[in-house]
Design a protein around this nucleic acid. Structure first.
Lengths: 357, 357
DNA sequence: ATCAGGCATGTAATCGTTTACATTCATGGG
DNA sequence: CCCATGAATGTAAACGATTACATGCCTGAT
C-alpha cells in the first residue's frame, strides 16, 4: 500500500528529463537514443512484441524507466486507428439504474484495458448532437447507448457508420446494432404471480410510458401472469404512468382525492413510481403494506432502504455484457447480437409478507 | 427534431467516398481536393478562423457536407497537443453523491466543448494505477479526482506533472492542485443548532471515519454550534462511524441491544449512515422522529424519499465549479485554487417538526 | 507608375507512434 | 566453403490534422 509500489521514482525521474527541460515530453525518440536502438525497436518493446532480444528489451526498459517515458495516446491512436476507448451515452435523469450499469460497463472494460468516455444526453435534441460528435472518427472505437429518448430511425442511421453500437434495454429492428435487455416479461410475471399468490384480489397496475419496450413488456408480463392464474385485470385499476417519481406521487394523490377505495395491492412498473406512491400514502398516514401492498421494478438502491418489494434488474450485469459485446465487436470477436438477462423477485416488506421483528 | 438536421446525408454520402471504397475515411485532403483549396484553408474553415474569404468558406463547407467529412480527434489532439477532454476519477462505491457531482462536471464541460473521460477506482490500490494511466500524455488535459482513498503524498506526486488537477471535497497542502469543498462546518453547525433549537437535550453524534476532512470538519461544526449554544456534548453519545450505511445500521443495533435508553436525537454525519440507523430502528418498530429525531448530511436522492432532514451538499454545483476550475487551468485562465461552497439545511420530517398532513 | 501593406491562400514541417519492408548477421545443412 | 533461412533490428512512410512562414495579389497613397 506504499505509494511507491505504484509510481516508483515519480519524483526522481518522471518529472525531469535528462536535460532538465520541462516543456518537451519524452518521446520514443528520446528512449531510442538513450538505449541506442531505433524507434521501431522501442515501439516493439512497448507493445510487447516477441521479436526483440531479451538483452535489448532490458536496455530499452531501463531507458524508459530512467526517462520516465509514457506513450502518447493521441499519436498511438492515430497510427493504429484505434483508441481503446468506448463511448457511453448516459441519460441525464437517472434514478441510479444507469449509474449502476455504467459501473458494470467499466468493470469489463477495465479488464480488457479499455477506457470509457461518457456523454450525458440531457434532452432528446441535444442527444443526437452528442452522439454525432462521438461518431467523429477517432474518438471512440464503439458506442454504448443507454438513452431511451432516441428515435429508432436515428439509431438506424447512426448504425450505418462503421462504429459498433450496443443498445441498453432496447433493440432496434433493422439496425446493425447489438442490444442487451432484461427479461421484463418473466420479471413482471413473477411479481404479479407473487401478489396473486398472496391472495390480493384488487390489483392495480401503474404502467410506464407508452411506446417504450420496458413498459410494454412489463405490462405484457402482467397480463400473461394474470391470465395464467385465471385472474382478470381490472381496467379501472390500470393507470398510465411515465416511470418518474412524480408520476406515482400524483396519480396516487389523485386517486386518494377522488375518494375511491384503495386497491388491495399495486404493481408499479418501476421503482421511482412506486416510491412516489409510497410517499403520497405516507403523507396521508396510510401504511404500506397494511393499507395497500406495493411492488416495484428494477431494485434501485433506494428500494432497499424503503423496504420495497421489487423485481431486480441485473444492472451491473447488463453493463458488463454490453461492454463485452462492444469490445468483441471492435476486436472482431463473435457476439450474440441480442441478449436477454434474467430478472428476479426481491421480496421485502412492502408486499406484506415479511416477518415483522 | 428531424434526424436529418443532425446527420444529413449519412446514408448517401458518408458511407461511401467517391471511389466506392468503404475503408478509407474522408480527410482534410479529400475536402481540399473537392473544393480546390489547400488543406490549410480547409483547416482554417473547420476551426472558424476569420482569415478566410466568405466565398472560399462556402465552397469548403459545401465540400465538407458533400463528403461527410468529420475531423479526426486523434490527429487533431496530436497536432494541437490538446485533447479537449478532462478525466474524472470516480469512486467505485457511491451513494449518489458523486454521480450528481459528475453531472455538474458534465454540465459545465459541455458548455465549453469539453469531453469527459471517466475512470472508476474500485479499491485504493487500483486507484493509483488508474490515475497513473491518465497521467499518460495525451489522454486528457486535466484531471478531476473524486476519490477519497488516495494518500496526500500520492496526490502531491501526481500534481508534479504538468497536468492540472482538481480535487473534490478535499484540499492537499503542499500540492499544486485546485480543490472545491463544501462548508462542512457551517452545515453541521446549522444542523446542530436546529436540533438544539427544537429542545433536544441528549443528542448523539455519529461521526465519520477519522482522518477525512469531511468527517473532521463536520464534527468540528457540531462542537462549535454546541459551544455557542452553551450545550455540552456528551462523550458517550459520540459514536465512531465510517460513512457507510452498514455502519449506522450496526451501531444502532448494538446500542439497542445494549438496552441503553435512546438519545433524544441523533446527528449522523452523512446520509447513508442516517439511513442505516433508520432501518435498524424501523426493524424494531421504533419511530423516527417520535422515538428519536434524526438528521443526516449530504441530501442524497434517497434522503428525500425517506423524509430525512439533512444538510444539503450542493453536489451539482461542486461539479460545475470543479469543471470550471479544471478548464480554466487548462486554458490558462485565472482560477481561485480553493473554493468552498455553501451548504443549507433541508428540514424534513425526521427531525420532528414537519407538519403532519 | 510604384510600392508599402494587408488580406487570402498555399507550402511544408510538425505532432509521436506504428509497421511494412529492407537490411544485417549468424547458423546449420549440403 | 557456400547459401538458404530466419531472427533481430533499422529505415522510412504512413496516420490526419495544425500552423509558422512564404507567397501572391489587390488596393490606395504618393
Amino acid at each position: 500500500m506504499n505509494v511507491n509500489d505504484y509510481m516508483p521514482d515519480v519524483s526522481d525521474t518522471i518529472l525531469r528529463d535528462g536535460t532538465g527541460d520541462f516543456a518537451r515530453p519524452v518521446t520514443v525518440l528520446d528512449v531510442s537514443r538513450q538505449s541506442g536502438v531505433s524507434t521501431a525497436t522501442v515501439s516493439r518493446v512497448i507493445n510487447q512484441s516477441p521479436k526483440v532480444s531479451p538483452a535489448t528489451r532490458g536496455r530499452v526498459l531501463k531507458a524508459i524507466e530512467k526517462l520516465g517515458y509514457m506513450r502518447n495516446h493521441s499519436a498511438r491512436a492515430l497510427a493504429r486507428q484505434k483508441t481503446d476507448t468506448i463511448g457511453v451515452v448516459f441519460p441525464g435523469i437517472d434514478s441510479g439504474f444507469f449509474s449502476e450499469v455504467l459501473k458494470g460497463i467499466n468493470e469489463y472494460a477495465v479488464s480488457r484495458d479499455y477506457h470509457l468516455m461518457v456523454a450525458f444526453s440531457q434532452g432528446k435534441d441535444d442527444e443526437h448532437g452528442r452522439i454525432a460528435e462521438y461518431l467523429q472518427a477517432g474518438r471512440v472505437d464503439a458506442l454504448i447507448l443507454m438513452s431511451l429518448g432516441m428515435s429508432d430511425q436515428f439509431v438506424r442511421q447512426a448504425s450505418q457508420r462503421e462504429l459498433p453500437i450496443v443498445l441498453i434495454d432496447r433493440p432496434v429492428k433493422g439496425a446493425r446494432v447489438a442490444s442487451v435487455m432484461i427479461d421484463n416479461i418473466s420479471g413482471a410475471g413473477a411479481a404479479m404471480s407473487h401478489l396473486l399468490g398472496l391472495g390480493y384480489k384488487r390489483i392495480a397496475i401503474l404502467k410506464g410510458p407508452d411506446g417504450t419496450i420496458d413498459a410494454e413488456q412489463r405490462f405484457d408480463g402482467c397480463q400473461r401472469a394474470a391470465k395464467h392464474a385465471g385472474y382478470k385485470l381490472n381496467k379501472d385499476l390500470v393507470w398510465p404512468g411515465n416511470f418518474l417519481w412524480e408520476s406515482g406521487y400524483e396519480l396516487m394523490n389523485n386517486w386518494l382525492d377522488s375518494g375511491k377505495p384503495l386497491p388491495d395491492a399495486m404493481f408499479a412498473l418501476n421503482d421511482p413510481m412506486a416510491m412516489g406512491v409510497m410517499e403520497a400514502m405516507r403523507e396521508r398516514g396510510l401504511s404500506v403494506p397494511d393499507d395497500m401492498a406495493l411492488v416495484g421494478f428494477d431494485d434501485v438502491q433506494a428500494a432497499r432502504y424503503l423496504g420495497l418489494t421489487t423485481v431486480r434488474s441485473p444492472m451491473r450485469e447488463m453493463g458488463r455484457v454490453a461492454s463485452q459485446a462492444a469490445i468483441n465487436l471492435v476486436t472482431g470477436g463473435r457476439t450474440q447480437l441480442e441478449q436477454v438477462l434474467a430478472t428476479d423477485l426481491v421480496v421485502r416488506r412492502s408486499c406484506g409478507v415479511e416477518k415483522k421483528s
